[in-house]
Design a binder for these strands. Structure first.
Length: 561
RNA sequence: GCGCCCGUAGCUCAGUGGAUUAGAGUACUUGGCUUCGAACCAAGGGGUCGCAAGUUCGAAUCUUGCCGGGCGUACCA
């Protein structure tokens, strides 16, 4: 496709002296293999009719092309031509590019809160963040990953007060992170009741504990460490099951003291302003943001912006990134606008990107959709994974499938559901579609890949090296056309941080491969040696692209399914 | 009120400017396992692309207005 684009661009430049960007698209087959509307684009500029322009281009083009409608150029190529084009570009890293060569990007995900069980609310930050990491790697960036743990702030106070009120060391030892979660929910309800009564005894105690932690009080630090230890074990276990990880885990607690120092610097520099009540803000009016960002509460406590400010500075000093990607839900869009404006104001030049995604909705009984909330009862990640594995096991064709393959299929189903739509689209959570094993789903793609891998394994004795120059690849046209789109798919997905483009591609590839499989024998009796070798060679390429594209999404291919 | 996002088939979603039939999945109806794995393939019905106006040779796609929904709007994170 790129090849044809360049050919046409060259002709347009020499014939009409016009520079084009890109203009070739893949057709459906009814209008050739590729089509372009360049003639109509430039007709006005060169003062000729679109059809005349098109005819001049076609005359210079060394390909089978015809002009249709108002001036479309439809190009038809041979299977052999497609195969040769793919071979020209082929490598073990087919699809990747070097757009980010020499540059560093920090990707932040999934940034859960500690002391709460890992819930499906953090499914998207993990999946999408992991995919962003892989897309950056595939485009040549140096990538640093950091889990910005929510191990600080008001919730800490809530746990301590709740723990002393509702729980005990024995209960904590038994229930672990789930006991902490129970305490948190009970305490939030208690606080709400208190607020209704117009009192603030409990909420004051929550703030007291938070301040104690900030001042390094021994008992508070001990609580914090204990809760963190329990939580981190849990977080690591669940992230392990999800197949994601980060190199760093620099949480809010790590940055809070640094943040307070930074706030003082900004006060000294006259950038931050202290209000009469003690709160500290930075005005952002010059960036079109009317609500100032709050850097310190009136009681002196740090909050989100305080630690994020320090985080920005720390990353600048340690890693000198050219770009930082925050994989965080859509609710925080406005906050990140504030943070990025603040960064500009203090002279940080790094490109900051909020890779946001839609919420996870639940269906109400009356048929309306509503954001999933802890008030309505969260769904735990472990529960989701268990359920997915149960479903995959129940639907398994053979009873002796390995636990590892079951795990891959379950995860493939869950992750693909996330990537099956644009990341900005809200996801409707429902137990049925979450584990979909057929149709537009992870297991569908995995299944196509497994079948291809099986054929390759069974025919390992036939090396696909010696591909006959005689074979015409006409039966492979659709597969070839799909494969040569891959580099462009990666580029677009990486440029816009839209992993769903990769998922769409993997599904499309699986579809053409399944059709091919149905209609074209590769290694059965009656297929001559040249044809067999040629077809196996193409399947080997297909297998590589399946593995590569699914890997970007964090999906593995089972041995059997 | 203001800001951002969204409205496409019964349902869940792609498609964000190029033509004849706007695509998938799901659900529904039907056909295909004695040949490389049927978690598959093939066929069918199902759409005033929220409404209206504008720009253009051409609009689901761009602009404006309206209607409907979601999220946000400094001491939560």
């Amino acid at each position: 496709m790129e090849k044809i684009s360049k050919l046409i661009a060259a002709i347009v430049r020499s014939e009409f002296g016009v520079d084009l960007t890109s203009s070739v698209s893949i057709s459906d087959g009814e209008h050739g293999d590729f089509s372009t509307n360049v003639a109509m684009q430039i007709a006005g500029r060169v003062g000729a009719s679109p059809r005349d322009v098109a005819e001049k281009i076609v005359a210079k083009l060394d390909l089978d092309a015809e002009i249709a409608g108002p001036g479309f150029i439809n190009i038809t190529v041979s299977g052999r031509w497609l195969n040769d084009s793919l071979n020209d570009e082929w490598s073990e890293k087919f699809g990747e590019n070097r757009d980010g060569a020499g540059k560093t990007v920090v990707v932040e995900y999934p940034s859960q809160n500690v002391a709460k069980p890992y819930s499906v609310g953090h499914l998207r930050p993990g999946n999408q963040g992991w995919a962003a990491r892989n897309l950056m790697l595939a485009t040549g960036w140096r990538v640093i990953t950091d889990n910005h743990l929510g191990d600080y702030g008001a919730p800490f106070g809530i746990w301590v007060v709740g723990f002393r009120k509702f729980s005990s060391p024995e209960k904590l030892a038994e229930g672990g992170v789930y006991e902490l979660g129970r305490v948190y929910v009970a305490m939030k309800a208690e606080l709400k009741e208190e607020e209704k009564r117009g009192e603030h005894t409990l909420s004051d105690r929550v703030q007291e504990w938070l301040l104690k932690l900030e001042s390094g009080d021994a008992e508070a630090v001990e609580y914090s460490q204990k809760f963190n230890e329990i939580s981190l074990d849990h977080i690591h276990e669940v992230m392990g099951r999800l197949g994601i990880s980060t190199e760093h885990e620099l949480g809010e607690a790590f940055f809070a003291p640094r943040g307070k120092a930074e706030v003082q610097n900004l006060l000294d520099a006259g950038i931050a302003v202290k209000n009469p009540d003690g709160s500290i803000i930075v005005h952002l009016d010059e960036y079109g943001i009317k609500t100032p960002v709050l850097l310190q509460k009136s009681n002196g406590a740090a909050l989100y912006a305080t630690t994020d400010l320090a985080t920005l500075k720390y990353r600048e000093e340690q890693w000198h990134p050219d770009r930082v990607i925050y994989a965080v839900a859509a609710e925080q869009k406005f906050y990140f606008e504030q943070l990025f404006a603040l960064a500009k104001k203090i002279g940080i030049k790094t490109e900051l990107i909020h890779m946001w995604f839609g919420l996870i909705d639940q269906m109400n009984k009356d048929g309306t959709r509503e954001k999933m909330s802890s008030r309505k009862g969260v769904i735990l990640m472990e529960e989701l994974l268990d359920q997915a594995e149960t479903t995959a096991r129940q639907n398994a064709k053979s009873p002796d499938m390995s636990d590892n393959d079951i795990r891959k299929i379950a995860l493939g189903a869950i992750k693909f559901t996330d990537f099956s739509k644009d990341r900005r689209t809200n996801i409707l959570f429902n137990w049925g579609s979450m584990f979909s094993l057929t149709g537009f789903s992870g297991p569908y793609v995995q299944y196509a890949a497994v079948r291809v891998n099986k054929i390759l394994r069974d025919n390992i004795a036939t090396p696909p090296a010696a591909i006959s120059a005689k074979y015409n690849f006409e039966a492979e046209r659709e597969v070839l056309k799909k494969l040569i789109e891959y580099p462009n798919t990666i580029k677009q997905a990486a440029d816009s941080l839209e992993p769903h483009r990769v998922a769409q591609f993997a599904y499309d590839l699986a579809r053409v491969v399944n059709r091919y499989y149905e209609n074209t024998p590769v290694a059965t009796a009656g297929v001559d040696a040249d044809t067999k070798a040629a077809r196996l060679g193409l399947l080997a390429k297909t297998a590589q692209v399946f593995a590569h594209s699914l890997n970007i999404l964090g999906i593995e291919i089972p041995e059997r399914m």
